[in-house]
Write a protein that binds this DNA or RNA. Structure first.
Length: 861
RNA sequence: ACUGCUGUGGCCCAAUUGGUAGAGGCAUCGGUUUCAAAAACCGACAGGUGUGGGUUCGACUCCCACCAGCAGUACCA
């Protein structure tokens, strides 16, 4: 055996051996229980970074532990391979997106292989290959059949940098596109949508069943779906048209003193009187010209114009004016509101600005609000007044309160009904770009939109395309590809020239892994229902809404098409934190200039700006090229080996928290693995652990056995519970320390300890564990060993320290028999010298005994 | 602005879920070894848990207010 741990030598050797032995293949047919462990698949950017390494290491540990626990494990990997970077790289460098993508996949696969992750590569998928997107198109046709894929003209988000539209979910709070960071513009365009809103209720309700998901993610999804309950109320205009509004406060209907329509509302034109025409048109023009940015400005003063018309309030026949204003959005509710200025702050501001009536209908207790003197709206509780049948009823959403009564009143008089409204919008999936899945639809002048027949799938993405990044869908320029006969009537027709949002590709890839090579169908229902749901999904928090919401939607839809028999794709979800690098920052500079790349800092102890000489701050920030704070995985592996990198990543921080990369701590993990190596060298060379099993165990042996089984227990709990890998690794260190310190190294117990350490280490540091396992004389892989089970007997202790408290203050501990009951503990404590020192001569008013823990005396002063 | 999460030795992080604040690691200091150094090994140091209140026999843990950092949402009727 080598006297020194040399990771480079052993890692490649074992990776090759495992490959040959097929250790990581997922077994479809087996009586073992299944476990599906999945990391979010990467975009093949061409370079593996530390964030990937962290993500995949976490999932790999889980997969390895489950295998050792007797599960058949599905642990696949693939490529989210369609997307704009390929197209942009092609434009910049004159290569083809396909070539660029497949080269990157080859590079990254090589990098991944070097990490020794236990993937079943036989199930690899790439979303850009025709045998995958064939089925993406097939699923699209399913949506079409179900009436859930449709085209409509709508105001959509246009990304001027990427030159394509993007979905609502893909625009952040600042109005910027998720990929390019460009401010999006609103455009009216006819586009393809998927009707995710049909599933809004289920997507919201089923969040409650996802016990293995972080609350944070569930909350974000719930907010995004944004359910509001209330009522629709139908007003009538003076001209006799119906005008329906949505409100969450139908109880305040008697306080509605005007109505506001969105400037885009279809009824605006008919409602506008001749005198108001100019003003209304001017306002509409103004509103449509306003960019998202203008609309973002906080506390913008209310603007609006009167249409010249009136509506009749259905509950009290009041004649109220109809206005238009841009604070009412066409995209939410019905695009029209009833305005109750006394109880809604926005309406209040509007009313004051345009001198409209304010009528109080909720009177808070002990106050006497008056619409004329009110300085802000009162959205709170109180008692209903000036509200006809609701007078005297407590205002609120509870049972028997005003909202419920108001809805009952509306429904019985046929003027409205209780309903819910969602913030969630339908998913805009058309993209005016090349490198994506062609939408399998044909536009026929006679038949309209005709789906491409299933037998003609896949609609192959043509290769001979010219990319400029400008001027609409690149596919539209390929006349030969675009012009086809209508599949239905045969007349000359045109293919749809947009491609699908790449989030569609990733909304079902986890299903395809269960049957990745199937050429006959999207997947075999037996296989998909067997392996799914994913037992553990691991990925970044940035997909809290996007990918995770879309995937849930797809799963529910495919279930309703009879293809799946489960409701949710991901049982448990772990959102791992970012990997941050040591970053040098010049506090006197701003924006991009403030970051000084670490390779330009001469003295890391006293960092200074190479340009100005100013001292720099040391902070931790997410690794990125622009900050020059990245640590390349291949450098770390070359220096320490992948096992050390894994140990460091797992140990440094709990998986869901951000991790600060620290070379000194990496060093520490390297030291630990070296210690384990030496422990084994000693063990083998000195022939330790070969002594006879004595009849009775000595105290040293008992203590060591307890240490061994404590480690098993803690590590098992850490892995099966909340994935506390950091504490699991520290338990490995404790066990290693206990073994070094053991005074019974000849004992078979010592051998049990050493072998247990190696088996427990195997999921975390698979290569060194395998090497040492074989050095111990075993022929079979350590990864095929059963994960150790706790022997509760081994954990039993004879005596425990008992904490003595007086008035809640800890005074020390006494040693007592572990089996002592409450009465005995109290007696032992009371009689102890320690306690007597503090309680002698005082009256004991109360004694609190916590078995196994402490005794607390409450005494009179 | 609203909602949520986080705040523990110099640093990263634990704490059996209300019961002795400290396991593990990093850094620092001292020692062993060495001609010397590195490595390795042995040992030591350290805070009362962001702040202020409250509940309790007892609070890092529960409640209230505030501060700081991070995240999500933002005229959603």
């Amino acid at each position: 055996m080598e006297s020194r741990y040399n990771p480079a030598a052993i890692e490649e050797k074992w990776q090759a051996t495992w490959d040959e032995q097929g250790l990581d293949k997922a077994l479809d047919d087996s009586s073992k229980p299944k476990f599906y462990a999945l990391s979010m698949f990467p975009y093949p950017s061409g370079n593996l970074h530390m964030g990937h390494v962290r993500n995949y290491t976490i999932t790999d540990v889980i997969a390895r532990v489950r295998r050792m626990q007797g599960y058949r494990v599905l642990h696949p990997m693939g490529w989210d391979a369609f997307g704009l970077p390929a197209e942009n790289a092609a434009i910049d460098r004159g290569t083809h997106p396909a070539k660029w993508t497949y080269q990157n996949i080859a590079t990254m696969k090589g990098q991944l292989k070097r990490l020794g992750l236990s993937y079943d590569w036989d199930r690899e998928v790439a979303t850009c290959s025709a045998d995958y997107y064939h089925w993406t198109q097939w699923i699209f046709l399913e949506f079409l059949k179900a009436g859930l894929a449709y085209r409509k003209e709508a105001s959509v988000n246009w990304d001027p940098v990427d030159q394509t539209v993007v979905a609502n979910e893909q625009v952040d709070a600042d109005g910027r596109s998720w990929r390019s960071g460009a401010l999006v513009e609103k455009r009216m365009l006819e586009q393809w949508f998927l009707k995710i809103t049909d599933y809004a209720e289920q997507l919201l309700a089923d969040l409650d069943t996802l016990n293995g998901w972080p609350d944070k993610v569930k909350l974000m999804q719930a907010n995004w779906i944004g359910k509001s309950t209330g009522a629709e109320v139908t007003f009538t205009t003076e001209a006799g048209d119906d005008l329906t509004v949505f409100t969450t406060r139908p109880d305040t209907l008697w306080g509605a003193t005007f109505m506001v329509l969105s400037p885009e509302h279809p009824l605006v034109e008919t409602l506008t009187t001749a005198e108001q025409k100019d003003a209304v048109h001017a306002y509409q023009k103004d509103a449509s010209a306003k960019s998202e940015l203008d609309r973002m400005v906080e506390d913008r003063e209310k603007t609006g114009v009167w249409t010249g018309s009136y509506a009749i309030n259905p509950v009290n026949d009041a004649k109220i004016p109809i206005w238009i204003a841009d604070y009412v959005l066409m995209g939410y509710g019905t695009g029209a509101i009833m305005a109750v200025p006394a109880h809604d702050q926005r309406d209040f501001e509007f009313a004051r600005k345009f001198d409209l009536a304010v009528t109080v209908v909720v009177q808070p207790e002990g106050e006497d609000l008056d619409g004329d003197t009110l300085t802000e709206a009162w959205p709170g509780d109180g008692v209903m007044v000036h509200s006809g049948p609701l007078d005297g009823i407590p205002a609120g959403k509870g049972a028997g309160q005003s909202v419920e009564k108001a809805i009952a009143h509306l429904e019985s008089t046929n003027k409205g009904k209780g309903t819910a409204n969602f913030r969630l919008r339908d998913w805009l999936i058309s993209r005016q770009r090349y490198w994506g899945v062609p939408i399998p639809a044909i536009h026929c002048p006679d038949c309209g939109i005709v789906p491409v027949p299933e037998a003609d799938l896949p609609v192959v993405l043509p290769e001979n395309v010219e990319l400029s990044g400008r001027g609409g869908s690149p596919l539209a320029k390929l006349d030969e590809w675009v012009n086809v006969p209508c599949p239905s009537c045969g007349t000359p027709a045109k293919r749809d020239t947009d491609t699908m949002d790449t989030f569609i590709d990733s909304s079902w890839y986890f299903l395809r892994y269960t049957d990745a090579r199937n050429e006959e169908q999207v997947f075999d229902p037996k296989k998909v229902n067997d392996w799914m749901a994913v037992d553990q999904y691991v990925g970044g928090i940035e997909h809290a809404i996007l990918h995770l919401l879309y995937s849930r939607f797809f799963t529910k839809f495919l279930r309703d098409r009879g293809l799946l028999n489960f409701d949710e794709p991901f049982q448990r979800l772990l959102t791992q934190g970012m990997v941050q690098g040591l970053t040098y920052r010049n506090p006197n500079k701003s924006d991009k200039n403030q970051w000084v790349p670490s390779d330009r800092v001469a003295d890391p102890e006293n960092p200074t700006d190479p340009e100005t000489g100013e001292p720099l701050e040391r902070v931790y920030a997410t690794m990125s090229k622009s900050k020059g704070n990245g640590v390349a995985p291949e450098d770390v592996i070359a220096r320490y080996g992948i096992d050390t990198a894994r140990m460091f990543i797992l140990f440094k921080a709990p998986p869901e928290k951000d991790l600060e990369w620290d070379d000194a701590d990496v060093e520490g993990q390297s030291r630990f693995l070296n210690r384990v190596w030496r422990l084994l060298t000693d063990f083998i060379e000195k022939g330790q652990g070969d002594g006879d099993a004595s009849g009775e165990w000595s105290k040293a042996e008992k203590d060591l056995r307890r240490a061994i089984h404590t480690a098993i227990k803690e590590i098992t709990d850490d892995i099966e519970g909340d994935y506390q890998f950091n504490t699991a690794v520290s338990e490995l260190m404790k066990l290693s320390n206990a073994l070094s310190d053991a005074t019974c190294k000849a004992s078979p117990i010592y051998r049990e300890g050493v072998e247990t350490l190696i088996i427990l280490l195997a999921p975390f540091a698979p290569h060194i564990a395998e090497e040492l396992w074989h050095e111990l004389g075993h022929a079979e892989s350590v990864h095929l060993q059963a994960f150790p089970k706790v022997d509760p007997e081994a954990l039993v202790v004879d005596e425990i320290p008992l904490v003595i408290q007086v008035m809640g203050k800890t005074r020390g501990t006494i040693t007592v028999p572990a089996a002592a009951d409450k009465v005995m503990l109290e007696t032992l404590a009371k009689e102890s010298e320690l306690a007597q020192k503090y309680i002698a001569g005082k009256e004991i008013k109360k004694v609190i005994v916590v078995p196994g823990k402490l005794v607390n005396f409450v005494v009179s002063q």
